[in-house]
Design a protein around this nucleic acid. Sequence first.
DNA 1: GGGCGCATGTAATGAGTTACATGATTGA
DNA 2: TCAATCATGTAACTCATTACATGCGCCC
Lengths: 183, 183
Amino acid sequence: MSLATSTSHITQWDERALLLLGVLTIENQHGYQINDFIENRLCSVVAMKKPTAYALLERLEKTGAVSVYSEQEGSRPPRKVYAITAAGRELFLELLRENLAHSTLPGFAGEVGLMFLNHLPAEEALASLRERKHRVQALLAGMESVPSHGPTLRIDLAMDHKRAMGLAELAWLKLTIERLAQA
Amino acid sequence: MSLATSTSHITQWDERALLLLGVLTIENQHGYQINDFIENRLCSVVAMKKPTAYALLERLEKTGAVSVYSEQEGSRPPRKVYAITAAGRELFLELLRENLAHSTLPGFAGEVGLMFLNHLPAEEALASLRERKHRVQALLAGMESVPSHGPTLRIDLAMDHKRAMGLAELAWLKLTIERLAQA
DNA sequence: GGGCGCATGTAATGAGTTACATGATTGA
DNA sequence: TCAATCATGTAACTCATTACATGCGCCC
């Protein structure tokens, strides 16, 4: 079940549960609302599809981390409103500590291609890396001015981290392209 | 089937296929040998388990990217030796160009926790980030002196990239911890 | 004789995405 | 009236990991 009890590495489940619980600490919300929030405000940080969220909410309910009640406004479709429980808050903090304390470096980070770079003629390899550079630059350009939701939801911090990683990638690409172009 | 024909984003399948095809460009090898190579020499860059590799090799054979022949040495267990085909070489180059040209930044990069950092008391948040910092430092320390396999397999390039990303993460953590400690 | 290395897999599990299904309301 | 929005899901598919299965040879 992977409750992240000091198991030394983080699963995607943990991160997604953390996200949903975190969103529910802001206020009680129904599934549609949560998905909407993630799609619109958090899309620059996270990618989670609707069915995944619905399924996870169900699971969190079964384990007692969130509670549900039905609500109906006028004659609109009924909603299932989720609220975080005391146990949920504990789990949230546990997952949060784990997430903050762990590094995200290991694993498949797109470095496989680099190993085989020399299998491409030098010109082509450089062209590919330059394209990558442009892509990264475009991504960075699209990261400007993301509104922060006050001190309770530091989207800005997450974006700052993303930006830092982007800039590092860019710097590395520049240097590497230069080095390869000389040789 | 995701042949990565300019579909604009890279699947894990693509990266794993690229890896296997790349290993087979070095020389014809049987499954055990390939897995051994990945586990021992490439473990710092990639993580792929044995059954995954066996399954993928089967699939690559079905699509004609690799061919197989059986071999037996003495009375040892028979081996299935895989060789990359002409079509496989084409696929390899295609995947390689794609992989090099694409950035790996987007998606779930462990930034969820940062968004909720303020839900932890300042001291605890700092402690978690400091732990992360130490972990990253440890990882970086373990990255020294990885032997390169000549110009045909640039493990060193991949490690250089990893190191650069690690250093960037470290720098960001230092700065962020300082900033948070002041406030 | 017992365990490790060689060499191949299969089966079960779990996680996430895509595509699909449903049905009411609201605005052009 | 036609499309989009609200609101919830289900079913099928893919992909990767874990644990298990098998059997021979080699070394202590």
